[in-house]
Design a protein around this nucleic acid. Structure first.
Lengths: 335, 335
DNA sequence: CTGTTAGCGCATTCAA
DNA sequence: TTGAATGCGCTAACAG
């Protein structure tokens, strides 16, 4: 039978100090190494701590120190395969600096993002914010609170907030270059959320592509496997020889539909993903795609936030490069 | 330029009370609805809160209330595709009950698990523990603290701790039944971590299988795609007609190797996964497997923990059923 | 080196 | 209904 810890039976620093025959301050000093303490007292404190099973109350420490020892992360969708690795890296960095990690999810709902960030701000030393669709004005309001914060996967020009992102533009440029060199002239892009900065960055790459003879048509689609599945058939009719996607999920959906329709890939049409979601951990995917260094992204983000916390350091936006992986779904256009 | 919130410029309940011309107690009452307050005062408080941008300090609330408003979750590997959906569900339930979610990862290292749980206990009202390999003695020690805790994916007989898990035994029995009905007589099981309860449950199903004429040989393997890739070749030589795996990742690795070797699936050998990791979110996988209701698992776990916190309620271990999904990698044995 | 004192910011007694 | 006083558990500043 478990009880919730009745306040009375919770062991505090005073219980320890009494048991050890020292003051509470000494117990604190021993446990935190804040000051030199006579070794005999140190031993008595440690004994008492062990006997009583004492653990400092984190809330009390936070209050007294003015620091929570916690950072917060807000992501739009915990189940999106993009984030686990990022969180893993953030968690590792965070832990290495002696802090804990609070995680919240907005469930892709911009309406709640603001509240969640506010909530994080009142219980975390710093916030890592991945909020692709939050309106600029709301972001500005949050930034104005001067609470340590790092923007993740989104760069907002004119905001004095450290941010880390991926060079999506360059990534898509590599994709286009690959296709152009294979001889493709017309391609379609299954577009992601139109309000998303990350999507806009991808699209921006098509201007340069045009200069090199590759015309890319943007088609509204979405960010899910299902969306790719539904949209791809109509796109094919337009006579393109290659299909680019907002992310790998969309590409998987599209491939699935193409397979059903008996369309051969890459013989009849090339399909190129984005993000490289399924690479290492799940299957040896054969999708040509361009990869995000998700673990590095998480690690660097955690480090920037830590520096911000310790030094109050403000840094320039950081862009991580993407890498093209040519696999089995891209090839020369049908002639 | 961001500063870390200088203590002096942090707005407290006293700032609000001064601005509104009321006592701090009244501010507290208005914000928490703890008692009736004259409506004119209510308005003044709300105005002051808005003007000053006041947000209650979570640590101070926690201290005063004796509750942190936070639950903690410990998982062995954040990047394991098994957990995102679980965390998503836990997060939703937790939030619905007005609590936050702290997440920690043991990185599959039993040595640190104990410390992490201790850390969670001193900053969380309750703990959700997924720790497949922690020795029974250590678990017992943690349970003895009487801190609200729910065991996840592990049932420990004789412990008075609420636990929720999946009926792995039944799941593997379904797999064996499927194979037996197809006519298979000899199969190999690529075993997961030997210390894991979840693995033992799967193996337990092979006794019944034998009674139905299916002989399953257990082969040490591991829990990763790589392990499946490395081990499967040697297994094939033993002449089995079907390969069962600890999880889908292992199965994917095995399939990858088989494909390389030109072994046809399921014509020459059937391959059956476990967990159904890649189903909906990523690709339309064609692996025959048996699925875990991961979101329900997370939801139910969160609810049990919440009940424990509110009622101090102790419940019997809960087992969720698995579902067999017959797809393209299983078929009749070669003759 | 150690104990005593005084907050940290809030919720909750107790009086009024 | 409201305000003043007290304490949650801990750390830091101050004496000794």
């Amino acid at each position: 039978m478990q009880n919730r810890p009745g306040r009375s039976l919770r062991v505090t620093i005073n219980d320890v100090s009494t048991a050890a025959g020292v003051s509470a301050a000494t117990v604190s000093r021993v446990l935190n190494g804040t000051a030199k303490v006579d070794s005999s007292l140190v031993d008595r404190v440690h004994d008492a701590v062990r006997d009583l099973g004492y653990r400092p109350n984190a809330a009390a420490q936070g209050l007294a120190r003015g620091e929570w020892g916690t950072i917060g992360v807000l992501v739009p969708d915990l189940a999106n395969p993009y984030f686990p690795e990022v969180l893993k890296a953030v968690s590792a960095v965070t832990r290495a600096h002696g802090r804990r990690m609070m995680v919240m999810e907005s469930d892709e709902d911009p309406a709640v993002e603001h509240d969640l960030v506010e909530d994080l701000m009142r219980c975390c030393d710093g916030v890592l914010l991945c909020s692709p669709r939050m309106p600029r004005a709301e972001l500005a309001e949050l930034v104005s609170r001067k609470h340590p914060m790092v923007l993740f996967n989104r760069v907002v020009p004119g905001f004095a907030v450290p941010s880390i992102s991926v060079d999506f533009h360059s990534g898509m440029t590599q994709v286009c270059g690959h296709l152009a060199q294979l001889g493709h002239r017309r391609a379609a892009y299954l577009s992601g959320p139109s309000a998303s900065w990350a999507n806009a960055e991808r699209i921006r790459a098509f201007e340069a592509a045009r200069a090199f003879g590759l015309e890319v048509t943007v088609v509204d689609c979405g960010a899910t496997s299902r969306a790719g599945y539904d949209v791809v058939a109509g796109v094919l009719e337009s006579g393109v020889t290659a299909i680019l996607t907002y992310n790998d999920l969309v590409a998987f959906g599209a491939l699935s539909k193409l397979r059903e329709q008996g369309v051969e890939v890459p013989k009849e049409v090339s399909v190129i993903g984005f993000d490289d979601i399924s690479l290492d951990r799940v299957a040896h995917s054969n999708l040509t795609t361009v990869s995000v260094p998700r673990d590095e992204l998480g690690r660097r983000a955690g480090e920037i936030l830590e520096r911000l916390l310790v030094n109050g350091y403000d840094e320039d936006p950081l862009y991580l490069p993407m890498t093209l992986h040519v696999r089995d779904t891209s090839g020369p256009p049908r002639s």
